[in-house]
Design a protein around this nucleic acid. Structure first.
Lengths: 336, 336
DNA sequence: TTGCAGCTTGACAACGTTGTCAAACCGTCA
DNA sequence: TGACGGTTTGACAACGTTGTCAAGCTGCAA
């Protein structure tokens, strides 16, 4: 800026005025300064600008998720980006990989960058930091998982994990299954816990006992799940139906069933939709989620807070129904 | 910081020293300051810190891509993030959606935030800005697409689009096909242009004439592609094989072929792998790419530059071979 | 006691920008 | 001519931090 001022033969304050298109600068100087800016390829430093005027429009929001390579989270990010873009706001995003330290570290880093607000898929690791940061006035919107922060009125967007799992399980029960296996993410994770609860509840409501060995949980890549489920299916007696409670698990299960030639004989419903679900044979029945929409909702809520809304916390818990595409409608007596 | 200093009864410089764990502060004061920091929930403002010490470690890199909801780009981002994370560096990411203005705007915004470096999947819109920014010393690594910036020695990571398309087409030719349709992204896009070239070249080498109506290009979502290809396949005579040059197109084609009951009779090879490619029937033959690896390579190269490497530009053009899974090995005389 | 070295601490400038205010300039009117 | 109002311009402080340097303190040797 100093250089531009020297080049144009004016004070740097005048350059500031021209760059910000403020009124009250003679057209003569405006052209001179603009020429100098173009000649030197000068761009104002937003960091300094934001440092000075702390009261300005929000410039950056932070998004903490588990893994951007998972289509669920990348679509969440896309929804957030979409809204942020319309507000001239950038998104700093980071994957925690479910590692507590990493979650803590990411949130601290974002806070130190003075993001205007945070959207967080929290596994609970950074509850204390988040809590104190929220007290200091940084708006935080939680997505997918509900944090365990007592006494705090929070904004939240998530699907109704329990109802989704219940719907999927009831769907299988309604098609005559009583021996249903559950494969899902680690039960320490909020959403997984609720999904497992929903599964168990639906079975209990139907008077069916859930055998312990029919519940398999853990945090794995979808290739690892392929192997795990493949081996599981080798043991007899097989379950007549399976419910997969997360998209990586679902991918693994489809591949394992395919590999064993069981896609026509073992019923399968997944929670969260996947690409090609309607192009496999039979089509994969799922309880879908719309992560892009979740992202949009979360971002809109965040901006509402940034615009000054200080009403009570808004909890959006979104339910959805089974999409029947074939795999969930297989009967227990199908060729085995 | 001022508040912390007051709380601890020291000057704010001393607080700075404690926060940065500098030596030469009496243990007595260190504890006092740390207590004050904890009590007030103070976090240093990285923006101010970076403003002061411009010579410090890189803190943020920018990544400009087309659409984070596309699994190719989200995996690229994941690879970049992985390397950035190990260097304590954050990633600002933005989707251009292929809109020229948006690309220009994103790059300008990143520059104004003084990102340490840029990784760019450019459609060429921001060539001038990038060029001047590179002259000013910001390292830029190009991914997937080669920019048209003459006289500039660039760093680049991309797959060998032309060779990939050639390999796919030769694979189909080798299985007896001569009537092959091409579906791909808009030919204005660098990678698509090369892929179409590769397709045409392979046909020409085999002495096969590529009919104009067998080449369909455009920028569409994968649901749009489903409809387009579905309608295309309704018209007779059908091609005996199809080559899809991008992952959205491939998804659309698999669904369209499935819908028409043609997956067993029309051969199909896709460029870029997709989830479940091995769980559809028949398995989908593809020429894979490893975007996560591309992201890692690009980020590593960027950090090499940030570490001071000023050698000539490094061009990494990565080739890969057809993975045969069934769909690409269907013969033209298969039941039609 | 003095002098000096070494450690600890704080005052002040600087990073690149914007906000505030006063100075300089212009034209107009009495 | 002088006073006045309005416009344009620039000097300077401030944002929150770090770098520089000097001042103050302590302990030890002369």
């Amino acid at each position: 800026m100093r250089d531009v001022a020297a080049e144009a033969g004016v004070s740097f304050k005048t350059v500031s005025r021209v760059v910000n298109a403020e009124s009250g600068v003679s057209p003569n100087l405006v052209t001179k300064v603009e020429a100098a800016v173009a000649r030197l390829g000068y761009r104002p430093d937003q960091r300094a600008r934001l440092l000075r005027r702390s009261t300005s429009a929000p410039a950056t929001i932070g998004f903490v998720m588990v893994d951007v390579a998972n289509i669920f989270f990348s679509n969440l990010l896309r929804g957030i980006e979409e809204v942020a873009m319309s507000r001239q706001c950038l998104v700093l995003a980071g994957s925690t990989e479910g590692v507590a330290d990493r979650e803590q570290q990411l949130i601290e880093t974002f806070v130190e960058r003075r993001v205007a607000g945070l959207i967080v898929v929290s596994w609970g690791a950074a509850a204390a930091t988040l809590r104190s940061e929220m007290r200091r006035g940084t708006p935080v919107v939680f997505v997918d998982a509900e944090p365990e922060i007592p006494d705090l009125d929070i904004d939240l967007v998530r699907s109704d994990h329990r109802a989704g799992a219940t719907a999927a399980t009831r769907h299988l029960l309604a098609h005559g299954h009583t021996d249903i296996a559950y494969f899902g993410d680690d039960a320490a994770i909020f959403s997984s816990r609720l999904r497992l609860d929903g599964f168990r509840q639906a079975l209990a409501d139907a008077g069916v006992v859930a055998a312990a060995h029919r519940v398999v949980t853990g945090s794995h890549s979808h290739h690892e799940w392929t192997g795990i489920i493949d081996r599981y299916l080798a043991a007899m007696p097989r379950p007549t139906a399976i419910f997969t409670a997360q998209n990586f698990v679902t991918l693994g299960a489809v591949r394992a069933l395919h590999h064993r030639g069981l896609r026509d004989s073992v019923a399968h419903v997944g929670l969260d939709d996947i690409d090609l679900a309607d192009a496999v044979t039979p089509g994969l029945s799922v309880v879908p989620q719309d992560p892009r929409d979740f992202g949009r909702r979360a971002a809109l809520q965040l901006f509402r807070r940034l615009d000054g809304d200080s009403g009570p916390g808004v909890r959006q818990v979104i339910a959805s129904e089974v999409i029947a595409r074939g795999s969930g409608e297989i009967r227990p007596d199908a060729t085995r």
